[in-house]
Design a protein around this nucleic acid. Structure first.
Length: 490
RNA sequence: CGGGGUAUAGCGCAGUCCGGUUAGCGCACCUGCUUUGGGAGCAGGGGGUCGGGAGUUCGAAUCUCUCUACCCCGACCA
């Protein structure tokens, strides 16, 4: 096979980039740091969206939409929030262009300067909480359980396709509650939804934990996260779910009368997952032949490739192919019959491998004679000849098996890449030589955390379900009750 | 924002040091024939303001100045 991808072993970052481009998921655009998501990549996003949306609605959330622009003054209301986002905001200062009489072309009309600049949202807490203020007077108005599908802009220094782009797509949930407990439960519920989605749908095992003080969301009391492990041993933060306490309610003066007739500030959460998860999906499962997509997110689950010479051989093949396609469609499987005569079979095999289609069927004259098809699995690259009879239900089951197999493989990789370390030297050894997650005792101080950061790794999270054990901080030697997860990350 | 690099056909590159025919090569594209069970072969063909601007020169992809864009490495981040 012609080599179109740089191998993972040769250069992992290059492999990733090649893969995104060659498989047709996305490409860089004319705009710095912004990508074009191509149809195949967008189809994956639509699948993810569809499933997440279903999960949100099943837990009582509704979709709404808030403005792209946020008045600058809104940002200054929550101190930590400003601090966190001010450095990466795109700002609208004018509302009109005019012809440049001197240099030709267009120029910003200096007479069209805005009274107050508008920020292109990097996240919507501020505009949403300024709105919620008008929606809440009584505990009867609570909870508010809203999600929005949107694009946001963060002016990052360096960008990478899907992993970090200036503009990205995401969903952001913003809920308001009458009690602390209810908001905390919501925060927990949503991080668990992300974990479930990631594992069951994307086939990516995740650790669920809380962020340290220094790593949490700007303006949050607590940030819960899901952390996944990529094949190069680096961690990637998936979704995050924030317990915002009463911070935003206080900043935007959102008060309500509770059951006891007393005035109180509303309790808040926010949670989000982004197109970055497509990057995680790619890096978690794919190989040197291309993407490996779990069946549940694959836009095409089965592709049928006819093999024929001359137009006489095609009709009987098409007949069988269409029959199998219909059977699969009835079972809810998405199928593409690629009968283009502009590409050869070998070309198509390579192409669908690159695109990560889970199951490929090849049907040629031999199969017509014998009543068979050739079935190839993308995840294991196994091929075998199967009878046409009963192939649809076989594939239906096989897709489940593949979904499970992909998850299992990622899970085993993570297990093999998770190391308990008890000394500083062991930590450095894991980070520099082995990669993956290091589980280590930490004394909970900022000083020790900063020391860990000098290795270029960070504390990814404090596991929610970690076992309690006596230990000593690998930095300070001070006592610690449980281990935290340390890794280099994207 | 610091350090390094790049800009020549849709993509990837050579040519630039040392100025001089009509700016090449691979892939892709188009036409024809032969092919089709793992990215086909042969023949023919199309496609370029050499990133923009200014300068030096008889002559600039090549030298000088300038602007712009992008990439890589760091600090920031989902």
């Amino acid at each position: 096979m012609a080599k179109v991808l740089t191998s993972k072993e040769e250069n992992y970052a290059q492999w990733y980039n090649d893969l995104v481009l060659k498989s047709g998921l996305a490409e860089n655009s004319a705009v710095r740091g912004c990508m074009v998501i191509k149809p195949y990549g967008y189809a994956i996003w639509e699948k993810m969206k569809e499933e997440l949306d279903r999960m949100f609605k099943a837990t009582g959330h509704e979709n709404a939409y808030f403005p792209l622009f946020i008045p600058k003054s809104f940002f200054s209301k929550e101190a930590e929030h400003v601090e966190g986002f001010a450095k990466e905001c795109a700002v609208v200062t004018h509302y009109r262009l005019k012809t440049d009489e001197v240099n030709g072309g267009l120029m910003v009309d200096p007479d069209a300067k805005l009274e107050e600049e508008l920020i292109v949202r990097p996240t919507s807490e501020t505009i949403i909480w300024s709105t919620y203020k008008n929606w809440v007077q009584s505990y009867r108005d609570l909870p508010i359980l809203i999600n929005q599908w949107a694009n946001v802009v963060r002016w990052e220094m360096r960008t990478r396709l899907f992993l970090r782009t200036t503009e990205f797509l995401w969903q952001e949930g913003h809920t308001a509650h009458a009690t602390q407990k209810e908001a905390e439960d919501e925060t927990m519920q949503m991080v668990n939804i992300y974990a479930d989605f990631s594992e069951r749908f994307l086939g990516i095992p995740v650790l669920v934990g809380s962020k340290t003080e220094s790593e949490k969301f700007a303006g949050a009391v607590e940030t819960l996260t899901i952390e996944a492990l990529m094949q190069d041993g680096k961690a990637l933060q998936g979704g995050t779910s924030h317990f915002l306490g009463q911070n935003f309610a206080k900043a935007f003066d959102v008060k309500f009368t509770n059951r006891e007739g007393k005035l109180d500030h509303v309790w808040a959460t926010s949670w989000g997952m982004t197109t970055r998860m497509i990057g995680a999906l790619i890096m978690a499962h794919s190989d040197n032949h291309g993407l490996v997509l779990p069946p549940r997110v694959a836009p095409i689950q089965v592709v049928i490739v006819p093999i024929y010479r001359g137009n006489d051989e095609l009709p009987p093949i098409s007949e069988v192919a269409n029959k199998i396609k219909d059977q699969l469609t009835t079972l809810g499987v998405s199928v593409k019959f690629d009968d283009r005569d502009t590409q050869k079979p070998g070309w198509k095999f390579a192409e669908y491998e690159l695109k990560g289609v889970p199951v490929r069927l090849a049907i040629g004259p031999r199969d017509i004679q014998n009543g068979t098809v050739e079935l190839a699995r993308r995840d294991t690259l196994e091929k075998k000849v199967m009878p046409q009879e009963g192939i649809a239900s076989y594939i239906k089951n096989l897709l489940e098996e593949i979904q499970e197999g992909i998850y299992r493989k990622a899970f085993d990789f993570r297990s093999d890449s998770t190391h308990r370390v008890d000394t500083w030297d062991e930590l450095v050894d894991v980070l520099n030589n082995k990669g993956g997650f290091a589980l280590a005792h930490w004394d909970g101080t900022r000083e020790s955390e900063d020391k860990i950061k000098e290795t270029k790794a960070t504390i990814r999270c404090i596991l929610l379900d970690a076992e309690q054990e006596e230990g000593k901080c690998i930095v300070s030697g001070k006592p610690s009750k449980q281990r935290v997860v340390i890794a280099k990350a994207y």
